[in-house]
Simulated assay, not measured.
Amino acid sequence: MILLPAPTRVLQQILLHRIRYLDRAIELDYQLVEFDDVRYHIQASSSDATSMILSIGLPAPPPEAVLSGGLPFGAIEAVKSVFGPVVQIVDPPEHNFQLTLKLDLSKLPPDEDERAELMIQFACLRAIVLGAPLRDVLKHLAAKVVSPEADRLMPIIHRPRESFFVIPQPDKVTVVIPIRFKDSNDSVLATSFLQEFMEARRAGGLSTAPSCQWSPHPPVELKGAPAHALDANSGFVSFVLLPKHVESEKLDNIVWSLCTFHAYVSYHVKCSKGFMHTRMRRRVETLIQALNRAKPEEEKDGKSTQGRSILRLV
């Protein structure tokens, strides 16, 4: 299994390259698109060596999503907590983007390693913004209380016009992720993959992992969810998180893993299809070689010493 890394690789490379030349004013203007329709726009002017502009565009929200200023609940507070005085939130944000940050490069840490670590955090902006509501719920779970702002059924955006649901309780948090695929073949492969994924949880080395269940029908936890959110052709995956699963350094990893679980499944479905296509092509090539060996030899024409053609009988 391959887990997707949280930092956006191209954005990380651009930011790390920029801090290598802090004494220079470099012209930058990049527009990047990541999976699940997350977009970035990074700008820097050749006349200003101390600032950069970074904008992020989020997936189109589903009808049930609850947003504040176009952003998930707690996103602004999460950004301020992670980056502190290094960033200034631009209001209003850039057109067609939900959040625009102005980076003050003069306030970066003096230590080179700390600067690089901060740039990697900027490359994780997607996880910080989209994962803010889930992170808040899981922080309260670690304290064994329920966030006062949390509803019984919290929708959290993770794909264009799609959300997964969080059901917070003092002693556990249940996360239910509807899995949808447009292609029917992808749906079949995803269903098989998720069934195996659920069975893998029973392996000895994974006994401490969160409980995982898959069902082709909506679980009882989704009672009261809108009808369109219950239409999932690849079923529903449920994770039950306990306080021990969100301790300290585990928190960020589990937030990222849950927010990108659909992309994780989609990645392995595409890999499975690629593997099967490769096997089929190799099998076809083997059959063609067998057919070629089974062909009778073609009749060969020879010529006499006088230049006349003769037919050689075999």
Rank of each mutant, 00 (worst) to 15 (best):
Q88E: 15
I89Y: 11
D91H: 02
P92C: 07
P93C: 13
P93T: 06
E94S: 02
E94V: 14
H95A: 05
F97H: 12
F97W: 10
Q98W: 12
L101P: 13
L101N: 14
K102R: 11
L103Y: 09
L105K: 07
L105I: 09
S106L: 09
K107R: 07
P109A: 02
P110L: 05
P110Q: 13
D111P: 05
E114C: 08
R115F: 01
A116L: 00
M119A: 12
Q121T: 10
Q121H: 10
A123W: 01
A123T: 15
A123H: 04
C124E: 14
C124Q: 09
R126P: 02
A127Y: 15
A127F: 02
G131M: 08
G131W: 06
P133R: 02
L134S: 03
D136M: 03
D136W: 03
V137N: 05
V137W: 00
A142I: 05
A142W: 12
A142C: 14
K144T: 06
V146M: 15
V146S: 10
S147D: 10
P148A: 01
E149C: 15
A150T: 08
D151A: 15
L153M: 13
M154K: 13
P155C: 09
P155Y: 09
P155L: 14
I157Q: 15
H158W: 12
R159E: 10
P160S: 12
S163P: 08
F164S: 07
V166F: 13
V166N: 05
P168S: 08
P170F: 14
D171I: 09
K172L: 10
V173G: 10
V173Y: 08
V175Y: 01
V175E: 07
V176Y: 02
V176H: 00
V176P: 01
I177M: 02
R180N: 02
R180S: 00
F181T: 03
F181R: 04
F181L: 03
K182Q: 01
D186R: 11
S187Q: 04
V188F: 03
L189E: 00
A190V: 00
T191L: 00
T191Y: 01
Q195F: 10
E196M: 08
R201C: 13
R202K: 04
A203M: 13
A203N: 12
A203V: 12
G204P: 04
G205T: 12
L206A: 07
S207A: 13
T208F: 07
A209Q: 06
P210N: 06
P210I: 15
S211A: 15
S211P: 06
C212R: 04
Q213I: 07
W214N: 00
S215F: 00
